[in-house]
Design a protein around this nucleic acid. Sequence first.
DNA 1: TATGAATGAGAATTCATTCAT
DNA 2: GATGAATGAATTCTCATTCAT
Lengths: 210, 210, 210, 210
Amino acid sequence: MESDKLSDESRSKRDAILVAARTLFAKKGYEETTIADIAREANIAVGTVYLYFRNKRDVYIGVAIDIEEMIAATFRDPELLKLPFVQIPRAIVDGIFRVSREHMNLISFLQVDMQTSEEMSQHKHTNEHITCSLAKIFQGAIERGELAPFNTEMYSQILSLLGDNIMYQCFAVEKGEREELYHTYFLEVVERLFFGPSLRDGQANYSKDG
Amino acid sequence: MESDKLSDESRSKRDAILVAARTLFAKKGYEETTIADIAREANIAVGTVYLYFRNKRDVYIGVAIDIEEMIAATFRDPELLKLPFVQIPRAIVDGIFRVSREHMNLISFLQVDMQTSEEMSQHKHTNEHITCSLAKIFQGAIERGELAPFNTEMYSQILSLLGDNIMYQCFAVEKGEREELYHTYFLEVVERLFFGPSLRDGQANYSKDG
Amino acid sequence: MESDKLSDESRSKRDAILVAARTLFAKKGYEETTIADIAREANIAVGTVYLYFRNKRDVYIGVAIDIEEMIAATFRDPELLKLPFVQIPRAIVDGIFRVSREHMNLISFLQVDMQTSEEMSQHKHTNEHITCSLAKIFQGAIERGELAPFNTEMYSQILSLLGDNIMYQCFAVEKGEREELYHTYFLEVVERLFFGPSLRDGQANYSKDG
Amino acid sequence: MESDKLSDESRSKRDAILVAARTLFAKKGYEETTIADIAREANIAVGTVYLYFRNKRDVYIGVAIDIEEMIAATFRDPELLKLPFVQIPRAIVDGIFRVSREHMNLISFLQVDMQTSEEMSQHKHTNEHITCSLAKIFQGAIERGELAPFNTEMYSQILSLLGDNIMYQCFAVEKGEREELYHTYFLEVVERLFFGPSLRDGQANYSKDG
DNA sequence: TATGAATGAGAATTCATTCAT
DNA sequence: GATGAATGAATTCTCATTCAT
């Protein structure tokens, strides 16, 4: 009981730090955000941050993982597996854009260079989650005969990278000003890849949204 | 003569700083590299750095632009325009991998977030160069009837982003350990996109290298 | 108790910085004194200075205000108001010289130019205190019929300025070498102003000291 | 001829530096003005400044002396000596205000603390010039029976100090906003001192300005 | 004389981290 | 656990001065 409560409070304090840090990192960037800023935003003392995180970088990693996890969740939606594959590319692309739009300022975190091997492996871990979720979807489709066999892992990886970077360009660099355009063409590329026709053979006739 | 020499010396000093910075940034990362380090590496005084760059960030931008420019050059190779389009994807992908492999440690610079609008616009500029070069190649192919018409600008943008991120993942994250795999599948994705077949319709039969 | 102690310690740390700074500024001047010097003299860490003052200039202002306040206190002595006015000029002049002699090295602070409007207003504030104290003394004398009515505010202002500058000249420039002379004639000028005779009408016959 | 010309050019270059420095010191203050600023303003190279002045402080002294000299000139006006003494206080006060108003921004230089003994002595020198000119005027008046004998040197010194400080307060601190008030009362004080009546004896009936 | 690129000592300031309470 | 005052290493950037041309 007691320990549960404490654990809850611990959880909530840790979360408060993460939320504060996420907000500030997004607003001012990593270097410009101080531990004191984070503590103030989270309504705790500076020293308390160090009870939950070893150092500033550690806080950063916590935040980054949170965000990646949020995106990863999009691909784990069990509803996705029930759809006929022909609807899946749109569902995924829609999902990615929805999450990214909601967390526009956080997208830049996806790109921050990983410095220590620990961060690397943490990042890889999340990345594998995403890739793996995608691959499962593809494998399901192959098994159901909706797709011809292909290297689902690599395609998942590449599509995941493409998604990351389009989100970054669309929301972090261009501030979402051409979201519709990116949405349209990201989807078109993915659908062309899965269903054709190739660029040599003709104009895609998937309904352009709008 | 005289002015040429002076200009040359200026150029060489500026370049010396950029080379030193590039080396150190790649080795230790941006934050861990001090202006003093750079000056030492370049065999000049600290103050001299500030004769050629307004501040540390400015040095960084100089380095980043250098690298982006190096990659952009790949796409401007006039030989590319003479090839039949069917050979172009491979030529481009090969080029990107070659340049990236040579400057492996620098790839991470492609991803560092641009903070000021000035940096943004500088980055956009280089990005547009690349996108534009690609678009020209595609338009040529369309005009020659090698491709059906499509939005060359958006496809160029998307492919450029994909290339960036694959290079980052392949060389910066994975240290080139699976270069061949990325090369194969990046190429396959691009060729599938341009020439088919779609993933629904069948296995690509472009020669897998190896 | 607890809070008192803390507050006391804070006070004492702030004061330690001010005392250290005052000493060093007087010995080496503002520009030649570094924050590191001050911290060393005050037996604290460099960073601690910045817990109590925003920057070096801020420390300087603190010191300057301390000193101005010390001088202002001379004029607020309640004993002054009880004296017959005929004794007041001597009392004031004596007071100014006494304080100035004690803090000879600090007198130069009275003259350092105020740069920001904040400093200006702080300075004005202290200045008004002094002027106001003087004016009150004069008004009392007018009310008691010891003086004819006059613009007490402006005369206070002018006399205060005169005092400042004589102290500066006497102690900061001439190192007190001719203190007696300045004392004599400053007093003579003030008494002549208040009691006559004018320089046209005759030699002052107030006892020259010595 | 040639040497004359060179000497002229030297003179003009030295002067150009002084003019540039005066402008910049007045605008930005001593510390905020760099040698590079001065050189730019004077349209010469940085190194050239060091051909005419040993160091930055030396430039400063040159500027300060220029200004003090300008003020000193007011008191040397031979017309002053021809006036009946009763008109002299007004003439002097008017002169001081006129010069000060014209060089409002420079007034602050009168107060900058002298740091080296060399500067001190330079400053003393100019100060003595002024004091001496005043003393001469007073002595003339005494000899002509217009004033009773008094210590002309000390009174000159004190009045000179008073003038400096009133100018500083009036123009540097208050930006000339209450010039008229200061003019009126500075004059009144001086005239009261010379001609009476004392503050005990009555209201001054010298025409208040206008 | 004149130049101005190069120098490098030096200073202010910041802030992650600690630890006594 | 929680606090936040204190720390002090470390860094960027400035700018007076020099000197080869």
